[in-house]
Amino acid sequence: MSVIDLEKAFQDKIDAEIKIEPKDWMPEAYRKTNLRQISQHAHSEIVGMLPEGNWISRAPSLKRKAILIAKVQDEAGHGLYLYSAAETLGTSRDQMVEDLNSGKAKYSSIFNYPTLTWADMGAVGWLVDGAAILNQVMLCRTSYGPYARAMVRICKEESFHQRQGFESLLVLSKGTQAQRDMCQDAINRWWWPSLMMFGPKDSESTNSDQSIKWKIKRKTNDELRQQFVDMIVEQVKLLGMTLPDPNLKWNEERKHYDFGEINWEEFWNVVKGNGPCNKQRLAARNKAHDEGAWVRAAALAYAEKRKNRLKTKAA
């Protein structure tokens, strides 16, 4: 078959909602886009462990400590599934980790913001995981099979995280004045970065059209962002808190909430590495990796010795 025929057959499959599997023919750009997206997603899970891991030692009750540990551990597990899914596209996990640690690969910018108070654990669960879920629910139907299947598992755990985050803020919202202030402050700080998680506006986004045609994505950045705003505006009322946007208003004509302009200068600055924690996050990943080098070497050496001993025995 000629490349043109292959491409047509590929697109027909996608149009017929048949999943693309690792050994199927695929356009190089489809492979690259998926690899970039899945590995970035994996990196985000791993780097995302850091801002929340930051509060494990100080969780205010044993129950909250256990919930937080379990949550961060889930993220490590998500990273594992996603690295495995990405490996089916022909790049090793070692290579992906190296790209993350060298700063070549990107991860979600949201994790370059600091977690300053306990309320940030709730806000991250509710807003950050809430924003991530909208994207991830869509990705459960993405056209690349291994990615879609990983997302189905991940979504189950993520929706649990979001509920935990909201519940933890609900307790604060019913608590003392100091706790309510802490809760509002966390919402104020996390709201705009959460909106940024959906990426540039559709009019500025370079990958969007092709990704939609290939059904890697099924909704645009702006559509998902709007869905998020509409959802959170209702939920924040249950907390008796507010969102820090004076332009937030129901638009009867659109049947959606209008909202203010994102600070795109801040968005691009954080993407470029100038967020409050970009350097710390990468430094922490590199430190863990470098200090673990001797452990990985020992595990390999031992496995090799064992294999040889078994061989000798067998002979």
Partner: peptide
């Protein structure tokens, strides 16, 4: 718990 997110190998972190 201080190892969480800082382990030498992802599987061992878990």
């Amino acid at each position: 718990a201080a190892w969480c997110a800082h382990g030498p190998i992802l599987e061992q972190d878990i």
